[in-house]
Design a protein around this nucleic acid. Structure first.
Lengths: 252, 252
DNA sequence: GATCATAGTCGTCTTCCTGACGATAAACAC
DNA sequence: GTGTTTATCGTCAGGAAGACGACTATGATC
């Protein structure tokens, strides 16, 4: 308390977004290419400055809408329309994390169903869904053998934290349904878990677990065969938010 | 992206601390009395401005040391000495949360063993351990019947979030040992769970659970009778961080 | 010193949940 | 029709937890 509050040091405050989705059986994150220094040309997480009259969650929702067109959900409402789940992740404030000035970034985590190709400022080449595995391998090579530069700033750490949050949160909550379209099958939900955790799950035990948990899934009455094979029942996300007992993640 | 980054709006960034401990079978939080406007004379969480060259966790550790004398732990090291566990909780940035200016507060959660009476600027009357139940009942009456003013700013919300974090985190981690002295008995650890959760636990099942979880507790060889009754084995916290399967919190 | 209260520790039993896995069902491709 | 794919139901064994009985080792009380 020996510090003079009237001479408080000024900070810039930003929000950065970890937007996750599942595409082609892989957990993917939204990345944008930086158009200016520092880290010009490198991939980064979407984000921007918090405006003077904005709450942090408002700023995150605004950035999410700007980058993806998604509306953020009220977290107290079960996921059901095409909105995304949005929650605060953590705050990153290392004095040297931005070489230009002191920037504190409040990272948020968004979970979205599979979306059409992203657009950043209308330019598709400057935004993409990339498998998180690819974004996180620092200085390696992508699946086509091209060199991969690490994410700008401390965004690799932020992304890793967001992925870990998502991985653990689908264990004990119904959040995995945020990755699904409004109506989905048990198999589609299972493939979400498999993609996020990177494991294979037993379809029979998974089916027993999710259909046996009250409030997790609500049958819509319809069926679909879009996955091939025998038609599957369609479900919507039920009202339950917490899974008890949780879905168990298999050993590593 | 239509916002001009060169004209970023200035923010003040602070850290606020939710410091929890267990005293006399009750979960208590550290509160300090505000000496100046706004909310002069009201109780608040300890905190202060982040300095220009400080990381957020450094600022939190500094504030914790200033208020309690506790050293913060490296979170990767098991809790064993008299240091406290310290982790980031969440960030609060409502534009109107501080009437003076735009302040973003990065709240941290600290868990500490029972400590001697706190001192804030050397003045004991301006800092105290108060049961969280008492601090959270807005505008009610304390246990001596005196009127209780709600905490300053949005600190009631921050405290509630911190308590909820602690309650859920002791389910699946060994963090409850952060509330205990370096050596403790199974019964003392059980009373921590009971105080934090506000429930009664079966001593026999609890004993089986904690002693049967590998790496949770390490016997020191000593015994104590400080609780009365039959002497109990003394333990230290083991290396395990995550409890799997978790400790189950009884239904409400 | 006998008795009592208090806390700690060990066991038992039942119930629930999970993992492993066999079997059947209903679509499509050929 | 046959094979392939995915969905769904059923069975069984093992592990963990809740309920609770029984015994142990202290200090307090009479």
């Amino acid at each position: 308390m020996s510090y003079d509050p009237s001479a408080f040091p000024p900070f810039a405050v930003t929000v950065d977004l970890v937007v996750l989705t599942v595409r082609r059986h892989a957990l993917c994150a939204l990345a944008v290419r930086r158009g200016e220094a520092p880290f010009q040309g490198r991939w980064a997480l979407p984000g921007g400055f918090v405006r003077p009259d904005e709450d942090l969650s408002q700023a995150a929702a605004r950035e999410l809408a700007e980058e993806t067109g998604l509306q953020a959900h009220d977290p107290s409402v079960p996921v059901q329309d095409n909105g995304a789940h949005l929650e605060q992740l953590a705050t990153y404030g290392d004095p040297k994390r931005d070489p230009r000035m002191r920037v504190v970034s409040v990272a948020h985590l968004a979970l979205a169903p599979d979306l059409p190709a992203p657009r950043a400022g209308g330019d598709a080449s400057n935004a993409r869904w990339a498998p998180v595995e690819e974004l996180l391998q620092q200085g390696g090579y992508g699946r086509e053998g091209e060199p991969v530069a690490p994410l700008a700033f401390d965004h690799a750490q932020i992304l890793a934290d967001g992925v870990e949050r998502a991985r653990s949160k689908i264990e004990y909550s119904s959040l995995a349904t945020a990755f699904c379209p409004p109506e989905f099958t048990v198999g589609e939900l299972r493939r979400v878990y498999e993609a996020v955790w990177g494991v294979a799950l037993d379809p029979r035990n998974f089916h027993r677990k999710v259909t046996g948990t009250p409030g997790f899934l609500v049958p819509t009455g319809g069926t679909t065969t879009r996955q091939g094979g025998r038609p599957a029942q369609l479900f919507r996300a039920g009202g339950a938010t917490l899974l008890n007992p949780p879905m168990l993640r298999p050993e590593v």
